[in-house]
Design a protein around this nucleic acid. Structure first.
Lengths: 214, 214
DNA sequence: GTAGCGTCCGACCGGTCGGTCGGGTAGGTT
DNA sequence: AACCTACCCGACCGACCGGTCGGACGCTAC
């Protein structure tokens, strides 16, 4: 079959880093080619267009994340534990590839770049994303119906969960500037994992409301 | 003094909508000018450069939000109630101007576009943002030291709070596609406000851990 | 009148954008 | 030898980029 993984993968790698840093519109193919050690024309031997390259990079990232989270979904555990493991996996995965969170956050609300002439690869990426979201959605629904979680609105909670996790790493550097403490680095990551699982654990577990009314 | 608020404000309005939709690099000045009903050259009569226009739009949005949240900060209430009011104000503010959340989310981790030659207006916007974040940070710190909140890491919690709130609206449309329920609209907003305050209220209030360990 | 001023615009600048094209090079097959 | 394929490149295309410039329009003030 097509037996050249080297150049193609190299292009994907550098493109992932660049798209994550400056977004789709902010990155020129010239820049990608230079970073990959190729001429600009050579990119078009491996990818049909800039849009296709971007979608393929996006799908790569999503797949990587989903494969990491897959065993958690299948684990035979009660919903609260499975949710914690899922959050931990997400946080670790985002921390492992620092570019991922930025690329993801951008992609999650930037896809309308392609309202006209969406490349066919976009559908694959969207499918991968929908699968991941559907997984955690199922965990939440299971927890709510089993009574382990408060009767929260599942879609809203999923949004909050993803937003809190992904945003944290996507904006960690600027956060460090404005806030006081370090938000990145090996030990800050484990701290973030703890904080986030703790927040959602306490926030979702069913029990009488501690606050009078509101 | 300079007595023409009309055109300038019109430019800011349309630029806000465009930057929110397609990002800084994705919007051309030609597009802004057309949307404002002006020639491209006329933009440079009101703004020195594209970067300055962007920063001024950003600062406008941040100021609008901060003014809305200001009374909450000053309210003589215990930390938990003040945090709830703050979240409610943020959610309502984001829902009120749908472009705001997208512009904000982009700006929050896209400022490195201006690492070289940052326009002086950027500093003002950053200052406004830092003030807002500092406000909610103080609420959290107060709640933690007073024992009302669990001893969470304040920077991490601020990040999660902002991420969960802003991301929700920034990506509401795509969320509606993948998730089931409606995430926007008058009644969905009030639901989101309830969900988010509820999540953080339950998640932050101090009390014994309901889960064995971990 | 005409001088000044704020506002706006068409034409234009150098440069970069995504993408095309024709050709070159290396290796494998026959 | 000839041929094919995979890979890569420099040169080039039209379109658009952010930004400049000289001048035109309408309006007050003198």
């Amino acid at each position: 079959m097509h037996a050249s993984p080297s150049s193609r993968d190299k292009i994907c790698e550098v493109a992932e880093a660049l798209f994550a840093r400056r977004g789709y519109a902010g990155v020129g193919l010239r820049e990608v080619a230079d970073a990959a050690g190729l001429g600009k024309s050579s990119l078009f031997h491996h990818f049909r267009s800039k849009a296709q390259l971007y979608c393929e990079v996006l799908d790569r990232v999503l797949r990587r994340m989903r494969e990491r989270l897959d065993p958690v979904i299948r684990a035979p555990l009660p919903a609260p534990e499975r949710l914690e493991r899922w959050i931990e996996g997400l946080v670790d995965g985002l921390a492992e590839h620092p570019t991922t969170s930025r690329l993801l956050l951008r992609a999650l609300f930037e896809e309308e770049e392609f309202i006209q002439a969406p490349p066919p690869e976009l559908a694959r990426a969207e499918q991968t994303l929908a699968g991941m979201i559907g997984d955690v959605q199922k965990i939440l629904e299971e927890g709510v119906t089993s009574g382990a979680f408060r009767p929260v609105s599942v879609p809203h909670t999923v949004q909050s969960l993803i937003g809190a996790s992904v945003y944290h790493f996507a904006s960690a550097e600027i956060g460090e500037g404005v806030l006081g403490g370090p938000l990145f680095g090996a030990e800050a990551v484990s701290r973030q994992r703890t904080e986030l699982t703790s927040l959602f654990r306490h926030g979702l577990i069913a029990r009488p409301d501690p606050v009078d009314d509101l």
